[in-house]
Simulated assay, not measured.
Amino acid sequence: METNGSISNSHESQPSDASDSTNKEKPTEKVVFINHAEIAWQETRKEWVGDQSQKPRRAPREPIMSWTTTYEDLLLTTQPFQEPIPLAEMVDFLVDIWLEEGLYD
């Protein structure tokens, strides 16, 4: 009889061991995704543009072209501008002209 009792006890302990092993297989910590490609891209971008936090901020400049400048004024002169016109300023100028002429929706 004692043998049967010990066998039954060993069977009872086995299911608890099995449940312990399933608990050990499940990770209790969340796996954090690390985007290595994005990190490499940010580092490469920093090399290209430099650290923007270290660069002093420039005060906004006055426009080089007068607000009264027309498209014809630009085309009729052969003289260079006194200083280079920033791309953003030229794009704004051309978009305004094209809107007036109905060329840009």
Rank of each mutant, 00 (worst) to 15 (best):
M1V: 05
S6N: 08
I7K: 06
S8K: 11
N9K: 14
S10E: 12
E12Y: 03
S13C: 03
Q14S: 06
P15Q: 07
S16E: 05
S16F: 10
D17K: 15
D17I: 13
S19P: 02
S19I: 15
S21F: 04
T22F: 13
N23R: 15
P27V: 10
P27K: 10
T28L: 15
T28Q: 15
E29V: 14
F33E: 07
I34L: 11
N35T: 04
A37Y: 06
I39R: 10
I39G: 00
W41P: 00
W41S: 06
R45W: 11
K46G: 08
E47Q: 11
D51V: 09
D51Q: 09
S53D: 15
S53V: 08
Q54E: 12
Q54P: 00
K55A: 11
R58F: 10
A59D: 01
P60C: 00
P63E: 02
I64L: 08
S66N: 12
W67S: 13
T70V: 13
D73S: 11
L75H: 10
L76G: 05
T78W: 00
Q82D: 00
P86H: 07
P86E: 08
P86M: 03
L87Y: 05
A88R: 06
A88S: 12
E89H: 03
V91L: 12
V91I: 15
V91T: 14
D92W: 01
V95E: 14
W98R: 12
W98L: 12
L99P: 00
G102E: 11
L103Y: 04
L103D: 13
